[in-house]
């Protein structure tokens, strides 16, 4: 479903490469974990997959169902069913969560030639997901993420993911800074959404989340390269030894 080939990326208008040749293939229904020390390029990879203009792909390709998406805008990637739960979601004054998500959902359905959801149907879906994700409904009356705590922002990312029902969900440290209840909620959200037609790329620094969401494949990213790939056991090894060994050889 998602294929990354020899991906190199740099900060736009700069020569310094952050991603230095990444290969990765995520099949439908798989959960991949990407682990790595701080500054190894995890968020950059997640952002590049979603088309953040801060970065430029300098070499290689990213394809979804065989078609390159490198030239696509972030919204076009969203229309393909991609989603990125951000490490640091922005606060957006004056934009209400419900209205925003409705607009986002309509934009995608419109782009895919599907019928827009009625306000009533969308509200029902929204309310259901608010409850499932366990986000305080009062927050939905505020501006998007404005004044939300770190944990509330992460739950709000989960809410957006649940409402937008992506095919390829990329989660950038959604587990960081969460207490155990919130972590459990995130894990439950992912497990509930797991399906043979949906793939996850879960970026994480610690393996905590992976206790609850069992990955099919684990990659270790160090200094812009994937240095080891394995099964769920690899996560345990990383937890035991840390990244020191990898960093030393790279």
């Amino acid at each position: 479903m998602l294929k990354i080939e020899n991906l190199h990326a740099a900060v736009t208008d700069s020569d310094e490469e952050i991603l230095k040749g990444i290969d990765l293939e995520v099949n439908a229904g798989e959960v991949h974990a990407i682990m790595g020390p701080n500054g190894s390029g995890k968020s950059t990879l997640a952002s590049v997959l979603m088309g953040k203009p801060t970065y430029t792909v300098t070499e290689g390709d990213i394809t979804v169902d065989g078609d390159s998406i490198v030239e696509m805008m972030p919204d076009e990637r969203a229309h393909l069913g991609m989603f990125l739960a951000m490490q640091y979601p922005s606060e957006v004054p004056g934009v209400r969560p419900w209205q925003f998500l409705k607009a986002a959902r309509d934009a995608r359905d419109g782009a895919n030639g599907e019928k827009k959801m009625s306000v009533r149907a969308f509200s029902k879906l929204f309310d259901e997901k608010v409850e499932e994700v366990g986000i305080n409904p009062d927050l939905m009356r505020r501006s998007l993420n404005e004044g939300f705590s770190g944990g509330e922002k992460k739950r709000n990312e989960m809410l957006q993911m649940a409402v937008l029902e992506p095919r390829i969900a990329i989660m950038d440290e959604t587990d960081s800074g969460l207490d155990i209840d919130a972590l459990q909620a995130v894990a439950d959200g992912v497990n509930q959404m797991r399906s043979p037609s949906r793939s996850f790329v879960i970026v994480t620094h610690y393996q905590r989340l992976l206790h609850y969401v069992r990955p099919d494949v684990v990659h270790v990213l160090v200094n812009g390269r994937i240095v080891e790939t394995g099964n769920a056991k690899l996560a345990e090894k990383v937890e035991a030894t840390g990244y020191r060994d990898y960093v030393a050889v790279n």
Binding site: T54, F83, Y88, A103, Q160
Partner: peptide, 24 residues
């Protein structure tokens, strides 16, 4: 720019996202 990207990544196009921020 990050906020624009945030909105766009959910599926609204650049102009719509910018208009949302202006209205907001």
């Amino acid at each position: 720019e990050d906020t624009l990207f945030y909105l766009q990544s959910r599926g609204v196009d650049y102009d719509t996202a910018q208009a949302m921020l202006i209205r907001g």
